[in-house]
Design a protein around this nucleic acid. Structure first.
Lengths: 128, 128
DNA sequence: ACTTTCTTTTACGTAAAAGTCAATTTTTTG
DNA sequence: CAAAAAATTGACTTTTACGTAAAAGAAAGT
């Protein structure tokens, strides 16, 4: 079960360029193996890419995405580190809740716009 | 009720710089009045700024924000324009729903991390 | 073996979204 | 009304997140 992905497979799957994936590697977000000079991506990398792109869609910067990814790497052993991590999780949660609220607000304004459009359409049909 | 806001009042309220607000004006997103050269913001501008920042938090580009703002400007009269607008609303809604899904996914991963942290904490308390 | 197609590295380029600085107004306040 | 504080404009700089091009090594089909 050691399926490898080539870089172009992944670029096609996710609709990003090779440059982008290499950039993420330079940034230390993913760590594909090498056979000679060629990169070999495993499903762990593939999953990381998914998470990176998710963060990107949400408007997180690379550094913020890095933070989130590091959080995912699982809880550390030491107490202080654990507490620090839980603080960070709380912070991210707060940001995400803010974004969620922003989305709800925007969606509800779009609803109003939609209603106004429908009303105007109805007017047009009756014939103004 | 013609309350005007000065630029610094607004920068303080929203935590942005004057440069930022001028930038938004240059981009045609807001249109403060002028008394001489000084900008006078009305509550309509203030509200627009809120929406701009909301879009910014969601990772929309200035152009995307501009699109959203233009949508808010109310339905046009002509049929073709109306249909175009409703298409655009549908697109934005789709983007927002994607973002919402991304948020849910991320939040639930953070939940797992949190649980793992708590579990580890419990272990530590028992004494490993 | 040859051509085509991938891939890599290196390096420079760029667009978006402001930040920063400097030189003037303009406004406010003592 | 003079001095200080705030605002404006314009130019230049910065950061982020890649794009693009060149040159060359590797793989794979014919």
């Amino acid at each position: 079960m050691h399926k490898y992905f080539t870089i172009t497979e992944l670029t096609r799957e996710f609709g990003v360029s090779t440059r982008t994936l290499r950039f993420y590697e330079d940034e230390g977000l993913i760590h594909p193996e090498r056979r000679g000079r060629t990169r070999l991506f495993r499903s762990a990398d593939r999953h990381l890419i998914k998470e990176i792109l998710r963060g990107r869609r949400l408007g997180f910067t690379i550094n913020e995405i890095r933070e989130i990814i590091e959080i995912y790497k699982g809880p550390p052993g030491e107490l202080g580190q654990l507490q620090l991590m839980m603080t960070r999780v709380a912070e991210k949660r707060k940001q995400l809740n803010q974004k969620r609220q922003d989305i709800e607000d925007t969606l509800s304004e779009l609803d109003h716009v939609d209603e106004a459009c429908l009303a105007r359409l109805a007017e047009l049909r009756v014939g103004s």
